Amino acid sequence: MDVFMKGLSKAKEGVVAAAEKTKQGVAEAAGKTKEGVLYVGSKTKEGVVHGVATVAEKTKEQVTNVGGAVVTGVTAVAQKTVEGAGSIAAATGFVKKDQLGKNEEGAPQEGILEDMPVDPDNEAYEMPSEEGYQDYEPEA
Rank of each mutant, 00 (worst) to 15 (best):
Q109Y: 13
E139A: 13
A11D: 00
G31Q: 13
A124R: 10
V3P: 00
P108N: 08
T72Q: 10
M127H: 11
Y133P: 09
V40R: 02
V16Y: 13
E131Y: 07
E28N: 03
K58M: 10
T72K: 10
K60M: 15
E46M: 15
K80H: 11
L8E: 00
E130L: 07
V71D: 01
D115I: 06
G7N: 08
S9F: 15
G106Y: 04
V40A: 03
V49C: 11
G41P: 00
G31E: 04
A124V: 11
A19M: 06
K6Y: 02
G132R: 13
A27S: 08
F4L: 08
T81A: 09
V77R: 03
A124F: 15
K6E: 03
E35R: 12
S42C: 05
L113V: 04
V82L: 12
P138R: 08
G73C: 13
E139F: 09
A76Y: 15
P138Q: 04
E61Y: 03
P117A: 08
K43E: 00
M127E: 10
G36Q: 10
A27L: 15
V16I: 15
H50K: 11
G68Y: 14
I88A: 02
K60W: 03
K97T: 07
A29K: 05
V55W: 11
A53R: 14
T59M: 04
A30C: 08
A124S: 11
K58Y: 10
E126V: 11
E131W: 06
T92N: 06
T22Q: 00
A56K: 10
L8G: 00
V16R: 14
K12M: 14
T33Q: 00
K23E: 00
E131I: 06
A76I: 09
G47P: 01
I112H: 11
T44E: 00
T72G: 07
N103E: 08
V66C: 07
V63R: 02
G101F: 15
P128C: 08
G51F: 12
V26P: 00
V63D: 01
D98H: 10
K43T: 03
M127L: 14
V49L: 15
G106E: 10
E46V: 04
G93S: 05
E61K: 12
G86Y: 15
A30W: 11
A56V: 13
P120W: 05
E130S: 04
V74C: 12
G51L: 11
A30G: 01
E35G: 02
A53Q: 05
T54F: 14
I112F: 04
E20K: 11
E104M: 07
G47S: 07
K21I: 10
V52E: 00
V49G: 04
K12Y: 14
K80G: 02
D135A: 04
G73D: 01
E46H: 08
G36C: 09
G31N: 09
V95M: 02
S42F: 09
G14V: 15
N103P: 10
A89Y: 13
V16W: 11
T81Y: 14
D115T: 09
G111Q: 09
G101L: 14
E104P: 05
G73V: 12
A78H: 04
Q62V: 10
V15T: 01
G36E: 02
E123G: 12
I112V: 14
L8A: 00
V82C: 06
G47D: 04
T75S: 08
A19V: 12
E137P: 04
M116T: 11
V70Y: 15
Q134Y: 15
T81M: 08
A90Y: 12
L8P: 01
N122K: 12
D119K: 04
V70P: 01
A85Q: 02
V15R: 00
E35K: 09
